[in-house]
């Protein structure tokens, strides 16, 4: 039992990291008032590009960087559509998802089902190896730590910096932000660009950091879970860490339970993260505080005439 818990906790950060990165990316978009339903496709493209770059001889860090850049590149038409031309965000986001999914399938055929060397575990905490439970949990690759640092930094930036204040104002009340001289579109472009990089990175981590192989459809709804995770986190990066740990933990539980011989059919067990996500959304709906955390202008188009 102890062994299983140790193994579970050791595996959890790996499941948690892509969710956290994607959630942080979405959080940035949503704080600027932009709902990005392209997330599932952008992650898929990031995963494919990360794998293809790894197979093409790039190091894991470079491969993930390229995955992130691919995420940004494919999102540019979406950004122009919803920010400059105020296109409705839901269908535009779905279109982005389709384009990115299609691109990952079309461009990635040569890279499918070919294993490669992925991200290695950092050696920093080797001496802790023997410590029960925690020791195994500390054996992670650099991206796990980087994602946590990013979350903390983003949380600090949003809460404390002038830029963060303005970004929050843009998503909350663009008319007031505009009246204060904040360039709404510039902030939105910046936020969605940074967000797309993070979402692409999240996808790249799935292949380069996680499975070390790329297959079509490997994102498997994680983008949608990240979308719900942002609601769960009440648009706060620090809470997103807990949310990602919860959902990642649920995901990590599935192979453990199987290994322990729990008599639940595997596909029904795999529903756990999705069902958990819906349950959490329902719980959040009861919290007034959570409802108020949603950026007031999320999903709507602002033009100055409305001021």
């Amino acid at each position: 039992m102890m062994l299983a818990v140790t193994a579970w906790l050791g595996a959890m950060p790996g499941f948690m990291t892509p969710l956290l990165l994607a959630a942080l990316g979405l959080l940035l978009c949503e704080r600027a008032g932009i709902l990005n339903l392209g997330v599932e496709g952008v992650m898929a493209l990031g995963a494919m590009v990360g794998a293809a770059a790894s197979l093409g001889g790039f190091g894991p860090g470079q491969a993930m960087g390229l995955g992130a850049l691919a995420g940004l590149a494919v999102s540019v038409p979406f950004m122009v559509a919803v920010i400059v031309f105020r296109a409705p965000q839901i269908p535009a986001g779905l279109a982005l998802a389709a384009i990115a999914l299609g691109a990952s399938a079309a461009l990635g055929r040569g890279a499918a089902h070919m294993p490669f060397a992925g991200l290695a575990v950092l050696g920093w905490f080797d001496e802790l190896e023997g410590v029960p439970v925690i020791g195994r949990m500390m054996q992670q690759d650099g991206m796990v730590w980087l994602a946590l640092i990013l979350a903390a930094a983003l949380g600090l930036w949003l809460a404390r910096s002038r830029g963060g204040l303005r970004l929050r104002a843009v998503g909350e009340d663009p008319a007031t932000a505009d009246a204060s001289g904040v360039d709404i579109q510039l902030y939105q472009l910046g936020a969605v660009a940074a967000g797309s990089l993070l979402i692409g990175l999240a996808g790249a981590y799935l292949s380069v950091g996680g499975s070390n192989i790329w297959t079509e459809g490997m994102v498997a709804g994680r983008g949608w879970i990240a979308l719900a995770l942002v609601v769960f986190a009440q648009w706060s990066p620090l809470r997103a860490i807990f949310g990602a740990a919860l959902f990642g933990g649920a995901e990590a539980l599935i192979p453990r339970l199987q290994a322990m011989g729990v008599e639940v059919p595997v596909y029904l067990l795999s529903m756990l993260p999705y069902a958990l996500t819906i349950a959490v959304l329902v719980l959040m709906a009861f919290s007034k505080r959570a409802r108020q955390a949603e950026p007031g202008f999320l999903g709507r188009a602002y033009i100055r005439q409305d001021r």
Binding site: F78, A81, A92, A95, I99, A106, R109
Partner: peptide, 20 residues
Amino acid sequence: SEGIVLIAQGIILLVLVTAQ
């Protein structure tokens, strides 16, 4: 690749909603 069909649909939808 059949992914091309998805891309084409995505492009058509994106252009259509942008044209609004």
